[in-house]
Each structure stands twice: as C-alpha cells, then as structure tokens.
Design a protein around this nucleic acid. Structure first.
Lengths: 202, 202
DNA sequence: GTCTATACAAAGATAGAC
DNA sequence: GTCTATCTTTGTATAGAC
C-alpha cells in the first residue's frame, strides 16, 4: 500500500522502498529529496545509498512497480476474447476506480514522469497492448465509422481524469474526500451506461 | 505563444519570461534550472535575477498567466445566461481543443504544479466559477437525478484527458502528431454529441 | 547493517566591472 | 542593462567508525 507508513517490522530495505514509493509518487522525481525518503523511512540517509546506490536507481525500481500497477490492470481485461464489449468496459471502470481510490496520486505521477522519460513505456509496450487488443476489434465492429481509439481514450478519460483533476475539484468546499469517493462509486455504474450510449451515436 | 523561440526584437525581460513560460511548462518547477531558462532566452543567468529576483518569483508570474489562460477560457462560456446547454458544450470543447493544440503541455503542467501549491486556485476561485455557474443550473434542470458535477468533469475529461495522455497515445507508432491533431478536431463534433446522449441516460 | 561526518556536485543568487 | 566571476545553499554520494 502506497499510503501506509512503513511498518516497524519491515526490513530497512523494504521500509526505504515503501517510503520512496510514497514520496516519489506524491512529489515526482525532481521535487523529491533523498533526505525526505530517508526521514519518512525512519532510517539514515547513508543507508539509502547503501541499498540502492543512487536516487535514480531507486526511482527506477519504484517507477517500474507503479507502471505495472497502472497498466497491468487493463491488459488481461482488454485481451479477454471471451468477454463482451459491455463487460470489458464494466470491468475496466470498476477495477480502475477501486485501485485509484487507494492510489489517487498514481495517474498524475505516471503521466508527469512519462513526459520526461519516454522510454519507460516502450518497455511496457502499452501501445500494442491496447492497439491490437480484442477490445479494439469489438469497438470497430460495433461502430465502424469512428476510430476505436476515440472510445478507448474516452472511457479511460471518464474514469481516470477525475483523479487527475481531484486537487481542483476538491478545492471546492462543496466536495470533501468522502463525497469524491462516493462520486467515483457512482461512476462505476454511470461510465458503462454512458459508453454504451456514446458508441451508438453516429 | 508558448512554443515559439524568443524573438530577436523582444526586450530581455520579455525574452526571459517567454523562455520561462516554455521551460517551466514543459518540465515543471522542480525540474527546471534557471540556467536552462537563461540559455533558452539567449541571455546571461545574472540577468534573470536582475529582472525577477528569484526562480520562485519568476515562476509565480508564469503560473498566474497560465492559470488565466487555462481557466479564463471557460468562465464566460459557462456563465452566459443567454446560450443553451448544447451551445455551451460546443463552445467549451471547441475552444479548449484549439487552445490546447497550441499548448499541449498546459493541462499536465497546471495539474502537476497545483498538486503542490494548492493556494493558487483559491486565488482564481475556480470552485465558485464552476459550481455556481449557469451551466450547472442547466444541467440540473435537464437531468435532475444525476449530480451536475458528473457532467462537468466528464465533458472536461473527454476534452482535456487526451492531451494529458498524449505521451502515451503517441508512443504508439500508429499515431503521429498530425493524426493526433486530426482526432482532436473530430472530437469537436463528437464530444458534444456524446454529451447530449450521456445527459439523456437515466 | 547502521550510523556520523564529510566530500563533491549542482543549482540559485549576488558582487562588481563594464 | 548586461556580463564574468564567485559565493552560498542544497542535495547526492561516500568514507570510515561502530
């Protein structure tokens, strides 16, 4: 869990990784100081370099984990040849909402860091993963006159964008943390219904 | 224009501001070095401090401009009591697409920096601007059983999210820069149609 | 493995000449 | 106003004791 404080029982190495995950995800690579990580881990700064050699190496490890968490979720769903289009959409939305409620900083972190370091997703081959997916085929079949990528981007946008805009939405006094979570729960039902209606539109 | 090189005729002060706008927007505050800005502006580092005192001050000026550009666009549209709901949506999408095609880094910049520095939009009162808008009234009237904020977030998400996810989408060999622009042009028509269908959904 | 102390590098800010 | 040179601060990494 990204948000929990490092447990007392964990090894120093694991405590550092936990703290790094948290601080990097919240502040981004450039704004993070290794001292912040050491402090949050409750260990000495020198120990961080003892275990991980450098800030960059530690970041690489964390980033790889977070990418897997973010993109790994979607892979099996979009490529399942046995599920219907509607079912796929339901699963994508529902899984992402649950996971992002636990890790609200994740999308902004991934998007921000990827901007600088564009080699990272070549490694994960996100492109093929989505472009050549079974989901794309099903979308093409249901609505041949619109590029299926439109729908993929839209469904992900409807699900993920609220988390990216969360700082803005929440500055509103009218929406506290529980209300935000409640809205996202509602979206598990709404987005699939909306998607269905959108795909019908000519 | 954020992307153009500082013109030869501009004053040093303006050249620095232009360069700062560009570099800050692209890399974010923490990852930006004042030396980068000076170099891109084609002036000496000392001059930057002569005009702007500090990195933070310079950033503040740039940030305020960019916030105004990002949020200023939407204010008059959502509060126009004489335009229909459909028309408002058309305008929001169309204006944002045009502006963001010229400033593709802007959304990620705003969202990233706002995360750390949450006082900035209190200044702009984005909340009231949206929450108490005429658009919200119209949405509530048209679909009373769903919180109007859902639709606002969705319409903005459908419009803005593609720019945030652009680095990922573009890693796909199948989508170059012109194709991305073409897709966004299509969205000027698609998003309003989709929104209309979404609002009808019960 | 873990700490203290410190070296080293990078980046922000300023002094002072022109 | 603009530059060169330099000071200061901050942050990463290492040496060496325990």
């Amino acid at each position: 869990m990204a948000k929990s404080k490092p447990s007392k029982t964990a090894s120093a190495e694991e405590k550092i990784k936990e703290a790094a995950r948290h601080v990097f995800t919240k502040k981004g690579y450039a704004a993070t100081r290794t001292r912040d990580i050491a402090e949050e881990a409750g260990i000495n700064l020198a120990l961080l370099n003892y275990y991980f050699r450098s800030k960059e190496k530690l970041f690489g490890i964390v980033m790889e984990e977070r990418m897997a968490q973010f993109f790994g979720l979607i892979t099996p769903i979009v490529n399942d040849v046995n599920s219907t289009l509607d079912r796929k959409i339901e699963l994508i939305v529902s899984y992402y909402v649950d996971m992002l409620l636990q890790n609200p900083d994740l999308p902004l972190f991934i998007m921000s860091e990827l901007r600088h370091d564009s080699d990272l997703f070549r490694k994960f081959q996100v492109q093929n993963l989505i472009i050549n997916s079974h989901l794309i085929l099903q979308l093409k079949e249901k609505q041949p006159s619109i590029h299926p990528l439109h729908f993929v981007v839209s469904i992900l946008g409807l699900t993920i964008f609220p988390f990216i805009a969360k700082p803005i939405i929440q500055s509103t006094d009218a929406l506290n943390s529980q209300m935000f979570a409640a809205m996202m729960e509602e979206r598990k039902k709404l987005v699939p219904k909306w998607a269905k209606a959108m795909i019908k539109v000519k």
